Amino acid sequence: MNVKNLKDRTLVSVIVPIYNAEQYLTACVDALLAQTYTYIEILLVDDGSKDRSGILCDEYAQRDSRVRVLHLQNGGVSRARNHALNVMKGEWVCFADADDEVTPYYVEHFVDAMEEGVDIIISEAVFVHEDGSRERLSYKSYGTLSLPEIFSDNELSAHGYACAKCYRIWPMSLVTHELPLRFPEEIRFSEDLIFVMQYLTVSPRAKYIPYADYIYYLRSGSASGRFFTFEMERSCFYKYIAQMNILSVISDIDLMQFSSSASILSMLFARVRNSMYIKKELSREERVNFYKNMAPEIRQIICDNSRGANMLVRLGYKLFMRGKHFKLMDWYFFFMIAIYYKKAS
């Protein structure tokens, strides 16, 4: 395909969900307006911000015709992204978070990589820690990869965020589970990963490019440090399992065999486990039933891939989960987590 012609005619939409991001928003939007590839539309989705974010968005729209502003009542990042997906005009879409930045080549490098038969393009990224140190995420393999390569070589399960990726829009219009492909609004953690995995069930290849144009700022107070309701955490856990099963069938290989995929499963289980005791929404019988109703192969994967957990968690799995002593397991984690969070407070 002639890249020049593609550049001349391909509109790329950039979606930015925004909630109380006044102090970061200018840097983010200015970076998007400075893109070397200019045939873009920037959708700023004000998700019911209580600060001046919405006003800043409107000011940008008045100054640059490429900026469109959507004002919503607060409903979460997935709802904000989905609303923008429903009204965007581009043939391709990429995402940016309001407290992050991009280089001037973020969109251009995606456009340069576009070709027939490739519907998702994935780039490197730079992570900026709170102490100012930077870490570049690089991949093992580049070019167009199959599902097994995506999960084994490049560990998609560990890098399933929505940003630093560019998606062709037409696969999102296909009906999956009776609905167009969108971010799951019923969960608030790892919704990006679930969305990317759902996309790969429709278009099971990805093209990796060696450019680190997305700059993530790792800040305290992120979703990874918060626990949501048991139903939200459990939904995410089982959605991950369901998507891994579907992708494993498509690729004709068990993708959960790869350590990064299994480690994410173990992490998501830990979030469900902790939410049961921290949120105090379930009775003891309900907690025990959750453990008991998990598939034996899932329990085995969790036990085998909890090396990142502390010694007491690993001991609890070894003593109680492996032996199916679920009532004892419930008592063990009930007291262990209560003591841990009492000390932490």
Rank of each mutant, 00 (worst) to 15 (best):
D8I: 07
D8A: 13
R9Q: 12
S13P: 09
N20S: 02
N20K: 07
E22G: 05
T26D: 15
D30Q: 07
L32M: 05
T36M: 04
I40R: 06
S49F: 04
K50Y: 10
C57L: 00
E59A: 10
A61D: 05
Q62H: 07
V69N: 01
H71I: 07
L72E: 04
N74E: 15
R81T: 00
N86E: 13
V87P: 05
K89I: 09
D99K: 09
E101Q: 15
T103A: 02
T103Q: 04
Y105T: 15
H109R: 14
F110S: 03
E116G: 07
A125C: 14
D131H: 11
S141E: 14
T144N: 06
L145D: 02
L145N: 05
E149F: 01
S152M: 15
E155M: 13
E155A: 15
L156C: 01
L156F: 04
H159P: 03
C163F: 09
A164C: 15
S173M: 15
H177Y: 15
H177P: 10
L179Q: 15
P184L: 02
I187C: 04
I187G: 04
R188M: 14
S190K: 09
F195E: 05
S203E: 14
R205L: 09
Y208N: 00
Y216H: 13
S222T: 13
F230H: 11
M232W: 06
E233D: 07
R234H: 12
R234D: 09
R234I: 05
S235H: 08
C236G: 11
F237C: 00
F237S: 00
Y240K: 14
Y240L: 12
Q243L: 09
N245L: 11
D252T: 11
D254G: 02
Q257H: 11
Q257V: 07
S260W: 06
S260L: 07
A262R: 08
S266M: 04
S275F: 06
Y277L: 00
E281K: 01
S283H: 12
E285R: 15
E286R: 15
E286F: 13
N289V: 07
Y291T: 01
M294V: 08
P296A: 01
P296L: 04
E297Q: 11
E297W: 12
Q300V: 04
I302R: 02
M321T: 10
F326R: 00
Y332S: 00
F333Y: 11
M336F: 10
I337N: 12
I337C: 06
I339N: 03
I339P: 06
I339S: 08
Y340C: 14
A344T: 10
